[in-house]
Amino acid sequence: MREKLRVAAGSVHRLAWQAAGMLALVLGIVGIALPLLPTTPFLLLAAFCFSRGSQRLHDWLLAHPRFGGPIREWREHGAISRAAKIAAGVAMLAAIGAAAAFGAPKRILIVQAVVMVFVALFVFTRPAPP
């Protein structure tokens, strides 16, 4: 009986990891189009979740022609490509510009700018992949 409960609990945990990975993957894909939603951190989270919930999904994500490269570069070198850094910088500027254009209150713009500065410092101080 204990063995059956342990197997059932393991199945539930794997399903939970898979669901979390799918949610992270969907958010990462949505982040491609939305400048305020980052793509790569959600893809990294998806890979982490899939590694615990489904080896098949994990391998698929790492082998994906579009998503696999940034994940492998981060895992192997802690690196962010130059193109990704430029895209991140443009997206951050666009997000602040859009907020200003839509009339966001000054305090919101200041908070957004401060957060973006720290994010930019992190992104632009990462090495480029070899």
Rank of each mutant, 00 (worst) to 15 (best):
R2F: 05
R2V: 00
R2W: 00
K4F: 13
R6H: 12
A9F: 14
G10A: 10
G10K: 05
G10M: 03
W17R: 11
Q18V: 15
L23D: 06
A24M: 11
G31V: 08
I32A: 11
I32M: 14
I32T: 09
A33F: 12
A33V: 12
L34H: 02
T39P: 03
T40C: 00
P41T: 10
P41G: 07
L43W: 11
A47F: 03
F50L: 12
F50W: 08
F50T: 09
S51N: 04
R52M: 14
R52N: 14
Q55N: 08
Q55L: 13
L57R: 00
D59K: 10
A63E: 15
P65D: 07
R66I: 14
I71N: 10
R72N: 05
E73A: 15
R75Q: 15
R75W: 10
H77P: 01
A79W: 06
A84T: 10
A84L: 03
I86F: 09
A87V: 14
A91R: 15
M92C: 03
A95H: 01
G103M: 04
K106L: 13
V115F: 13
M116L: 11
M116T: 02
V117G: 04
V117H: 02
V119T: 06
V119K: 01
A120P: 09
T125H: 05
A128D: 13
A128E: 12
P130H: 08
